[in-house]
Every structure is written in structure tokens, then in C-alpha cells.
């Protein structure tokens, strides 16, 4: 029984981890808590709905599932296209809202503006797609039975593997490429990065692209393993913040470990508390981290 909870925790934690990466980076580099980040997950998921609809018209559609997964090759194309579209959305929001406010307003103004952006984005989706849940595919998927009596969905295992690939790719980007090293430099000391010759504006675009792409992948995978609702991202807002704060702003590994920790604690908590209280677990984690170690597990003390 406990093994099943651990497996479920890791699998749901992977989605939180992907979403928390972008939140953590924007918190560190743009220096504000972006409450609209969770809506990028939702938009990513709905961009994939459009992608599959267009693909159905052109031919191919959802594709033939590759056993044991519920999806075929078109899903990989959908991930790439939605990542690109969600990045464009994030960059547009940056230019329309956050960059303008950053020039003249304080940190708290940015936070409240992000609330507004979140509401706008969420209700635009209700307006376009309606409030009812959507599914990418009506195909039924059967759980795999792992040793120890643990049941998992193949799609969720794919998601966990995909998360590992994304994290390794980001690690290589941040430590090997000049753009990645510049990004870490901007996170630590933007002025020193500027006088070294780093175009901070370009780095900020990269932060949005990485954050939005990870969010889009998380959104599509959530839509695939659960269902699509306009509140998809909003329901993950608290877990995302818990993961980013637990890991420490700006830390890639912090966000991933934070995400897995949030997923595990949520799923393990139901063994001792009623399921109704499960959403309170990330909130409790935020309080504990802020009280005992405000910089998070991997964050730099300022």
C-alpha cells in the first residue's frame, strides 16, 4: 500500500517538478512571484487540443497508439508545438505586462498584476473551450502491474522519463552553454553580468522560453493522464509554489526535488489524514520552509 502511494507521489510530483522549474527561474531572475505561471500549464494543455484538432483535419490526428502508451508519435510533435506556442504567449505577456511594470513599478505591483493576468488567461479558456472537461483521446488505458503489487499507468511512466530527460538537458544547458552560464550569472548579479557583456534582455527571453516550455509539457502530460479543465493549472498553483520555495528560487534541482517532495507528501498524507485535507499539505510545506529555511533547500541565502 505504501509502495503504491510512493509511486503515485513520484508520478504526480513529476508534473509539479516540470511546472516548478519555470516558476523558480522567473522568481530568481525576474525577481517576482508569478501567479500566472500555472496558467501557462493550462494554455499548454489546450494548445495541444488545437494541435490534435488541426492534425485530425490534415490527417493523422491523434495517431496510432504505441503500446503500452495511449498515444502515438503525434504527441511528441504536439509537445514541441505547444512548447513553442506557450513560449510565444509568455514572451507576449512579458512585453505587454511584466516588462512595462518592471520599469516603473515595485515588486508587489508585479505580483498583483500576475494575479490579474492569471484570471484573464483562465477565463479566456472558459470562454473559448467552455467549462466542461476535455480529453485528448477516449481510448482506455490499462495499468501495468509492477513487482510489489504497484499499479502504474504507462503514460505516467513516460512522463517520469520525460522529466528526467528535460532535467538532464537543462543541466547541460546551464553548465555547458554560454547562454546557460550567463543565465546563472544574471540570477546572481545582473549588473556584473551586464558589464561583462551579457545582454540581460536576451537572457530574460530565454528564462520565459524555458519556463513556458516546461510548463507546456507539464500541462499536456497532466491533460493526458488526468483530464483538461480550465482550472488545470490553477489547481496546481499551490503545489508549484511549494516546490519552488522548498527547492529554493533559481535552483533547477531544487525545483525538481521540491516537486517530487510535494507529490510524495500529498500522496503519503492520505494514509494519515482524510483525502479532503490533501490540498492543505503543500500549504503546510510552504509555511514550514519559510519558517525554518526561507532560502529553500538549494537556494542562496541573501
Amino acid at each position: 500500500m505504501i509502495l503504491q502511494h510512493i509511486a503515485d507521489g513520484l508520478l504526480s510530483g513529476a508534473i509539479v517538478a516540470l511546472g516548478a522549474i519555470g516558476l523558480s527561474f522567473t522568481m530568481k531572475i525576474l525577481r517576482f512571484a508569478n501567479f500566472s505561471h500555472s496558467e501557462l500549464l493550462t494554455w499548454g494543455a489546450y494548445f495541444a487540443v488545437i494541435f490534435f484538432a488541426v492534425a485530425a483535419v490534415i490527417g493523422g490526428g491523434y495517431g496510432t497508439p504505441i503500446a503500452p502508451f495511449s498515444f502515438g508519435w503525434p504527441l511528441l510533435a504536439a509537445l514541441l508545438v505547444t512548447a513553442a506556442l506557450t513560449s510565444l504567449l509568455a514572451i507576449a505577456l512579458h512585453h505587454l505586462v511584466f516588462a512595462r511594470l518592471n520599469r516603473m513599478a515595485g515588486h508587489m505591483t508585479m505580483v498583483f498584476a500576475s494575479f490579474g493576468v492569471a484570471l484573464l488567461l483562465r477565463h479566456l479558456l472558459v470562454l473559448i473551450f467552455g467549462p466542461a472537461p476535455l480529453y485528448y483521446s477516449s481510448a482506455l488505458q490499462f495499468a501495468m502491474l509492477l513487482p510489489g503489487g504497484v499499479r502504474v499507468m504507462p503514460d505516467q511512466v513516460f512522463l517520469l522519463g520525460l522529466t528526467v530527460v528535460v532535467v538532464i538537458a537543462l543541466h547541460l544547458f546551464l553548465t555547458r552553454s554560454r547562454t546557460g552560464i550567463s543565465m546563472r550569472a544574471v540570477a546572481e548579479n545582473p549588473d556584473l553580468a551586464r558589464v561583462s557583456g551579457v545582454d540581460v534582455g536576451r537572457i530574460v527571453m530565454w528564462v520565459w522560453i524555458i519556463g513556458a516550455s516546461c510548463a507546456a509539457v507539464a500541462g499536456v502530460m497532466y491533460g493526458l493522464t488526468v483530464q483538461l479543465r480550465p482550472e488545470l493549472g490553477f489547481s496546481l498553483l499551490l503545489p508549484l509554489f511549494a516546490a519552488a520555495i522548498l527547492g529554493g528560487a533559481g535552483s533547477l534541482y531544487g525545483a525538481v526535488i521540491g516537486g517530487l517532495a510535494v507529490g510524495l507528501s500529498e500522496n503519503l498524507s492520505v494514509m494519515i489524514i482524510p483525502t479532503t485535507y490533501k490540498p492543505a499539505v503543500p500549504f503546510l510545506m510552504i509555511l514550514l520552509v519559510l519558517y525554518f529555511r526561507p532560502e529553500g533547500l538549494f537556494g542562496e541565502r541573501r
Binding site: 546572481e188 548579479n189 549588473d191 551586464r194 558589464v195 561583462s196 557583456g197 540581460v200 542562496e300
Partner: peptide, 24 residues
């Protein structure tokens, strides 16, 4: 001229404090 273009044009600046990237 923005600071990053000045750097490319041959101006180097060493601040008094925080003059290295400590986390790098």
C-alpha cells in the same frame, strides 16, 4: 550605450563589492 555593448566595445569595469560571481 547599454552596458553590455560597452563591454563589447572595450570598456571593462571591476566594481568594488560583489565583483565576482560567487556561485559560479
Amino acid at each position: 550605450t547599454p552596458a553590455h555593448l560597452l563591454a563589447a566595445a572595450g570598456v571593462a569595469y571591476v566594481p568594488q563589492t560583489d565583483n565576482v560571481f560567487a556561485t559560479l
